[in-house]
Amino acid sequence: MNERERDWAAWMAEAEAGDTSVYRRLLAELAVFLRKVVRRRAGSFGVDDAELEDVVQEALLAIHLKRGTWDPAQPVGPWVATIARNKLTDALRRRGRRIVVPIEDVEEVLAAPQEDEGLSARETDRLLSVLKGRQHDVVRSISLEGADIRATAEKFGMSEGAVRVALHRGLSALSAAYRSFRE
């Protein structure tokens, strides 16, 4: 097991114990790794960077919500890469492309200018808008405005527990929104 793997596995365990700063560092490293995985796999499909970043974000959400599927006996890298690959496959499918089609068959299609049907990273605000009420306020406050749980609780006159619940439900709803935009 290489050094990176050892770090990631240890950070996963610490994050699970609720260590926010370790978890932030882990997710930041995973984002870099995800970007590489997604870019390499999407290479020949003419997907623009904003869309790739969209897949990265969707994969990060899935990694967070599905981290209970990671087995501590299993390396983190392949687990993360598989999630990214599945999300990329979904994203390509949503654009109406089949990744099994040989590249020669789609060259013309790829060369043609194409309208941007997928939900790109630039449109995440539109995605955020599917969240309702407190979930929207809380996710927005913590992500876009960079407030922490306590500051958010004070701002909206909520308990910290209620903020945590709204945040978690909001993130689940965000992931579901990606899914429904895909269909």
Partner: peptide
């Protein structure tokens, strides 16, 4: 939303 903003929200949900 930038990816780093999303990571803030995910990290806050670590607990």
């Amino acid at each position: 939303m930038r990816t780093s903003d999303l990571i803030e929200a995910l990290a806050a949900d670590a607990a």
